[in-house]
Computed example of a mutant assay.
Amino acid sequence: MARTHGTGVRKVRLWRWRRNPLRRRSDLVEAWVLLAVLVLTLSAAVLVGLAAAAAVDDSLAERRDRTRTVPAVLVEDAAHAAPASVSENGDGAVWAPVRWTAPDGTDRTGRTEVEPGNRAGTAVTVWTDPGGRLVPPPPGGAEARFQIVMAGVTTGVAVAGLGLLGGRLVRSRLQRRRLGEWEAEWRLVEPSWRKRMTG
């Protein structure tokens, strides 16, 4: 709602909460609905975001518990290996074949990222699962914190967006209803106005 002040227009804040002859019951309902949507949306966004962050943290912790480092040996010179398309460490690592011993005592071979200057026979460390298969190293430190924070923020923002969208839909329905009420009242009042204008 706005009030004229001189040549300008001044908005009256929180007019739906103030008693005035122009305020309708639907205006007050809309104000309460918007407040409830805002409070519930912010609360849900925070709670769901924290839950998502905790779930990712638990998942990473479980992944760390299920993997272990084992010593391995380069099978051939890393200088002849193909460069890794995406190196997790960003250090120009290359893919090279390595050999390690599984928990059951059998020798295994596979490819992992190593430094490009390593020669055959160089000792390296690889990550394996309980079955002795090569797996990527679990995120730790800053990378793990980044994944946890991003999971919480992304989920919280998504929940907040859905809540605000729902609030807008409810508000648009209330506005359509209010316009309908205004039109119905105008149809009742308009004949008397016409009489006054023509009288």
Results as ranks from 00 to 15, higher is better:
T41D: 07
N118I: 01
A158W: 03
T101F: 00
D58T: 15
P116K: 03
G140C: 02
T198K: 11
V114H: 01
R194Y: 05
V46S: 14
G8M: 00
V149T: 13
M197R: 13
M1L: 11
V189F: 13
N118T: 09
A142W: 07
T67D: 03
T69V: 14
A51T: 11
P130M: 03
F146C: 03
G105V: 03
E181C: 03
R24P: 00
N89L: 15
T41H: 06
R10C: 04
V70W: 01
V9M: 09
M1D: 10
L60Q: 10
E143F: 10
R16D: 05
R25W: 06
L188S: 12
T69Y: 08
K11I: 11
A160H: 02
G49Q: 11
D91G: 04
S26P: 05
P97L: 04
G49I: 10
V73L: 10
G8C: 00
S172C: 00
V46T: 15
F146V: 14
A93G: 09
T109W: 02
T101E: 02
W15C: 07
L34M: 11
T112H: 00
R111W: 10
S87F: 03
W15A: 13
V9W: 14
V56D: 10
A96W: 01
S43P: 02
R99Y: 02
R178W: 02
E190T: 12
S85T: 15
Q175S: 08
A45R: 00
A142N: 06
N20S: 14
T101L: 00
L22A: 14
R173M: 08
A55I: 05
R173L: 14
W15V: 03
D57S: 15
R16T: 08
R25L: 07
Q147Y: 13
E190L: 12
D27S: 11
D65A: 15
R145W: 12
V33H: 04
W193S: 06
K195G: 11
A55E: 12
R23F: 00
M1C: 07
K195A: 14
A44T: 09
L134Q: 05
G180R: 13
P191E: 01
P21C: 01
A72L: 01
N89Y: 09
V39N: 08
V149W: 12
G163Q: 07
P139F: 03
E143Q: 15
G92P: 02
A81Q: 06
V46M: 11
P137G: 14
N20C: 05
G110A: 01
R111M: 05
E185P: 04
A31P: 07
L169C: 03
M1N: 10
N20K: 06
S85K: 15
P97H: 09
V56L: 09
V56P: 08
A78S: 02
L50E: 09
V33Q: 04
H80C: 00
E76L: 11
T125P: 03
V124E: 06
V124N: 06
A93C: 04
A81V: 01
V189I: 15
E185L: 12
R19E: 13
V56Q: 13
S87P: 04
L50H: 08
G131E: 14
G105N: 04
A53N: 04
P116V: 07
E30L: 13
K195V: 13
L188T: 14
V189G: 06
P71Q: 12
G6F: 00
A53S: 13
